[in-house]
Amino acid sequence: MTDTSTSPSTSTQVQLVRRPTGRPVPEDFRTVQIELPPLGVDEVRVANEFLSVDPYMRGRMNDVKSYIPPFALDETMTGGAVGRVVESRAESLPVGTPVRHMLGWRDVAQAEADSFSPVEEIPGASLSAHLGILGMTGLTAYVGLTAIADVREGDTVFISGAAGAVGSAAGQIARLLGASQVIGSAGSAEKVTVLTGKYGYDAAINYKDAPVRDQLPEHVPDGVDVFFDNVGGDHLEAALDVMNDGGRIALCGAIASYNAERPAPGPDNLANLITRGLRMQGFTLGGYVDHAPEYQRRMAEWFPAGDIPQDETVVDGIENAVEAFLGMMDGANIGKMLVRTV
């Protein structure tokens, strides 16, 4: 048993109390203080340092069947987090071990040791990188480009939501995998500048300036070979217009519709899938975790070499986690949106 004199005995946690209709509002959530019980055998207590808030969490707020169960009402929500063990009854995870886990939306997590995975501390990098480019975010981008879209040397790649966590990773990874041209979309002039000035995009469009369908063709006169979609809606429709024969579309997200109160009409040009021999496939990361070792080997070369710059938008305080989530859904972030709890 370890010394527990500095181990927190309470946990501040965020719960869902009402299923949102349309855009979530703060009243759909509540923050509670939970008294933690003494550790059981093989349990650990972790002080979270960063929590991840992600678009997929909006879907879990609906009581519908999906690839992951919905959040239960009046219970603490979950999500990615990183922190350090502050109390332990597990030999495998001594005090001080940095870990990644899925017990987010709280500042202190307690569970059996196998709920936590140790992570490597990388010189010059925050633990938060394990929630972004070194974690599921980066792996999602890699899987979408390789296992789903089969990106090839010389491809022209279009990425929607390009300034977000997955999008910013996907653009850089596409280039490292041999894409000759990478085009992105974002929702502000500032984000467009970041895409072309920092992330190496050849061009980027601000979808708020004019319809994507009107803007995209001038940037891809020779068409698009791979479309990595985080947005859906008008972006998917615009991409279908300019896809080359044999093009591949990876559907990663559809944030444009997550707060919709009724289904939106589908693209009016789906027939291009037939006439151009396109392949369009949706995916979630759960079915492709076997690609993680391959990604980690590649990232072990790319990340230390500085080939993957990253941005984080950090909101301080567990009490501001809902604000961070709502901001992320409104596009307030560049790169990964995180909540810093310490």
Rank of each mutant, 00 (worst) to 15 (best):
N206S: 03
D214H: 07
T275D: 12
V194P: 01
V194T: 09
N272L: 14
M299K: 09
H219Y: 14
L270P: 11
F283I: 15
G187W: 01
K198E: 05
G286K: 14
T196N: 07
V289Q: 13
P265D: 00
W302Q: 05
E218H: 12
G246Y: 08
G306I: 01
I173P: 06
Q215E: 05
E237S: 15
Q172I: 00
I274R: 10
G306W: 08
I173L: 03
Q181W: 11
N230W: 05
G286M: 14
V226R: 07
A239H: 00
D209V: 05
G306Q: 10
F227Y: 13
R298W: 06
V289E: 12
G232T: 00
E190K: 04
A174M: 03
G277F: 09
I183E: 07
D234C: 09
D209S: 07
N244V: 10
I183R: 03
G247A: 14
A189S: 08
T275K: 15
R297Q: 07
M299T: 11
V212W: 00
E190M: 08
G223D: 07
S188C: 00
G277M: 12
G286P: 14
L240R: 11
S188K: 01
T196M: 06
Y258D: 01
D234R: 09
A238K: 01
N206Y: 04
L236C: 04
F303V: 09
E261K: 14
N244C: 07
M299V: 11
T196W: 02
M280C: 11
H235Q: 08
G200Q: 00
A210M: 03
I183Q: 08
R248Y: 06
L176I: 03
D241L: 13
G232P: 01
L195N: 00
Y258W: 06
W302L: 03
P221A: 12
D202V: 10
P217L: 11
A189I: 03
